[in-house]
Amino acid sequence: MRHVYLVTFFVVVLGVSILGLRGTKFTSAPMDVFPEWAFPGMKHQPKPYAQGSSDFFADGRSDRMPVAGTVQRGMLRDDEHLDHGKTATGAFARGFPEVLPVDFKLMERGKDRFTIYCAPCHGALGDGNGITKKYGMGATPSFHDDRLRQIAEGEIYQTITNGKNNMLSYADKLVPADRWAVIAYVRALQRAQSGTVADVPAAHKSELGLK
């Protein structure tokens, strides 16, 4: 009987050395301990996954483009000012679309989106000194010159939507309302950078050590 226990012990040691312990890094596909052929269930369903692959469609993708001539729900872009940054005459629109009141909420949203999508290159202050500059990104323009202070809001909208020079389009990341929120925040940054002592309300001057 002692031999049986010895053999069992060695089998266990062998098993543990082959299987290893929990949490070890591995690169091969994870083991399926309840495979579908032995334990039929619904773990693997013949359905398309978002960003998945498909043997059915010629391009091998499960994601489909909208059929020509159709518009997805909520994706109709027919407001010249809101969706294209243009006026009725086709010039770049100045000011913000009427449906989007520029308030604190829009500004907060703009700050949030700007920090995520724009700050890596344009910098938190909009001065073109984002982190990417250190890694070889070409000259990112500063927002703080007269040309960009005077530029129409619609033209900024166009740049976000379609990109410009080395900057690619951010239309897939920012829906129209978010693009306008970012523009509002860019305007705030421009105003802040050109601020003077005269802009500080009298009541707050002493807090900053000003007269």
């Binding site: 226990y5 069992t8 266990v12 098993g15 299987l19 929990r22 949490g23 070890t24 890094k25 591995f26 690169t27 596909a29 994870p30 083991m31 399926d32 301990v33 309840f34």
Partner: peptide, 26 residues
């Protein structure tokens, strides 16, 4: 004893804690 070993083995190995944690494909 054998049943005990088998139970311990199943409990330890037949769970995502073993089969999935640490999966780092190339």
């Amino acid at each position: 004893v054998l049943t005990g070993i088998a139970t311990a083995g199943v409990t330890y190995y037949m769970t995502p804690k073993y089969t999935r944690i640490g999966y780092a494909p190339v």
